[in-house]
Simulated assay, not measured.
Amino acid sequence: MYERKTPDHLECGIKVTAKVIGSKWKPCIIDAITRGVHRPGALQREVGLTSRRVIQLQLKELEMHGIVEKQVFPVLPQKVEYHLTPLGQSILDVLNAMNTWGEANRERYSGELEPAS
């Protein structure tokens, strides 16, 4: 995994939140987990438009930040599921607010998220 050479300056809450969930796919992954999608392959199909590797990297970062926990079942073939931690549950209000704003302003933006004239 990429490691920054310069330190993060996390002097405000917005920067902390952006560091933890600020990517193209992390909010969508968290949303899918809250809707009962727990297996990596199912998460990749649910989120769509991205590779399994990207989903795995995003899950690894979410796990590193304590948002999700990985559960490995002792079966062959190996079965893995991801679940939100209590810390992950606490971020749902932020994601719900993002969703509410997005739904209220959906018509303003085209498919490419360019402001409508």
Rank of each mutant, 00 (worst) to 15 (best):
G88H: 00
M1S: 14
W101D: 08
G66T: 00
K79C: 05
I33V: 02
F73Q: 15
M1T: 12
D93K: 14
L49D: 15
N96W: 09
V47P: 02
L84M: 06
R39S: 08
D93N: 14
K60T: 06
V20S: 02
I14F: 14
Y109M: 02
T34N: 07
A18G: 09
W101Y: 14
P115K: 05
E11Q: 11
M98G: 11
G102V: 01
V68K: 00
Y82V: 03
I30N: 02
R35V: 07
D31R: 15
P77Q: 02
M1K: 11
I14M: 09
I91A: 01
S90F: 03
Y109V: 04
K79L: 12
E114C: 10
E107R: 15
E107Y: 12
V72R: 13
P27R: 08
T100E: 11
G13R: 14
L113K: 13
I29N: 01
V80D: 01
E103P: 01
T85A: 04
G48V: 00
E103D: 11
M64N: 13
S23Y: 04
D93L: 10
W25A: 11
A97T: 08
K19S: 08
I29Q: 01
L113I: 13
M64W: 05
G22V: 04
K26L: 06
C12W: 14
S23E: 05
V68T: 06
T17P: 03
Y82F: 10
